[in-house]
Nucleic acid binder design. Structure first.
Length: 363
DNA sequence: AAGTAATGCAACCGCGCGCCA
DNA sequence: ATGGCGCGCGGTTGCATTACT
């Protein structure tokens, strides 16, 4: 049984593309588009390639305005921040870096950026981390549930914080990387979807009716509720289908496909419709989580942003960045508001409310 | 100069999702 | 409601290049 192959593997060429093949594919797509069918496309052109291979070649190499290599510090910062917040969702990250492909970013992260950030940590924190992780693996079965990506992000947090206690990062919103409201929504989405207990309870969830909600909680939730009631948007969504949140792809930037996914539309409009009953705050499912929640609530009430701590965010230090980088999100967002390059007009319009909340909360 | 290891990158693979008949 | 199909994604592989011994 099993899935039928997408093409005739026997009669399909593999490996590097020749200039002739590139020229054929590029010329055809530029003139006719894909016709909405990658599988049929190679036959039309007379290429002995799999449709998926054609698609990949076009998206990652042939389409206009592709940039290769030479990642700037600003791009490093974006990749770093987004990876921390949403993990290895390269297409989403790529969507925020015009001209970059998910594949390119993925390679860049795996080969350079990760080593750049984590390598240093391994030197300075190896003792602490190895001891804690080793203990965790042996004594705490739940630690096995932490994906490599989650662990990596956790390590990154610690590296960026230069702190031994990973929870301390989450305790202090001042230390959190500044995120575009959309990315924060993604973060919340990730947390609610994640099976990792730690990830599910990173955000401080205030008690019902408690006016002293943490700034971060207010900030994030206000972003979520400004368009739709996102309190509808959690447990019933946690169905293991991580990709059900279709946020568009790197190909949306310039690809002339008619069915390019609208980044915000699919998030805000389509998904909540599937949920009918409002669902309350996530309940703590373990003493650890309750303890963490309590800790977060206490520590974050009366919280005052501390610029010094922000400036100590080693992610930006290490990249020779400045606090100016932290403002990037807002600036970039405004820039994007004037172009539909990777955020289409509808997305921007729908996001404006969130951005206002973002500014009120953080700027 | 030759052999080997490390690195970078393009391409492939398999899976999940959404669309549509 | 359901099954087939194509698309898009993230992970992995393989090869070429570079660095090192």
């Amino acid at each position: 049984m099993g899935r039928a192959p997408c093409c005739d593997k026997e009669n399909v060429k593999k490996g590097p593309w020749s200039p002739e093949e590139d020229a054929k594919l590029k010329a055809y797509i530029e003139e006719h588009g894909t016709g909405g069918n990658w599988i049929a496309l190679p036959q039309k052109i007379g290429l002995k390639r799999c449709g998926k291979s054609c698609r990949l070649r076009w998206l990652n190499y042939l389409r206009p305005n592709i940039k290769h290599g030479g990642f700037s510090e600003e791009e490093d910062n974006i990749i770093c921040s987004l990876y921390i917040s949403i993990g290895s969702r390269w297409s989403i990250i790529a969507a925020q870096l015009p001209g970059r492909t998910d594949n390119d970013i993925k390679n860049y992260w795996n080969t350079k950026l990760k080593k750049k950030l984590l390598g240093k940590r391994k030197q300075s924190n190896s003792n602490r981390l190895s001891s804690t992780s080793a203990e965790g693996n042996e004594e705490n079965p739940s630690s096995h549930a932490l994906s490599n990506s989650a662990l990596e992000r956790l390590q990154l947090h610690m590296q960026l914080q230069n702190l031994g206690n990973p929870l301390s990062f989450y305790n202090n919103p001042a230390l959190w990387p500044k995120l575009h409201p959309f990315h924060e929504k993604m973060l919340l989405q990730s947390l609610s979807e994640s099976s990792d207990p730690l990830m599910q309870h990173i955000l401080p969830i205030p008690e019902e009716g408690n006016e002293q909600k943490s700034e971060t909680y207010q900030h994030v939730t206000s972003s979520l509720t400004c368009q739709q009631d996102f309190t509808n948007f959690d447990n019933s969504k946690v169905d293991g289908s991580e990709n059900s949140l279709n946020l568009g792809t790197s190909s949306d930037n310039s690809f002339p496909s008619s069915n390019a996914t609208n980044v915000m539309d699919s998030t805000i409009v389509s998904k909540p419709e599937a949920v009918e009953e409002p669902v309350g705050p996530i309940e703590p499912v373990s003493s650890f989580q309750a303890e963490l929640e309590d800790l977060l609530r206490n520590k974050t009430s009366g919280f005052i942003a501390q610029e010094d701590q922000i400036s100590n965010f080693d992610c930006f230090k290490e990249m020779n960045g400045t606090k100016d980088n932290l403002v990037w999100w807002s600036n970039e967002f405004e820039i994007r508001s004037t172009s539909s390059n990777s955020w289409n007009c509808n997305s921007v319009l729908q996001s404006e409310g969130m951005f206002q909340d973002y500014e009120l909360g953080y700027m």
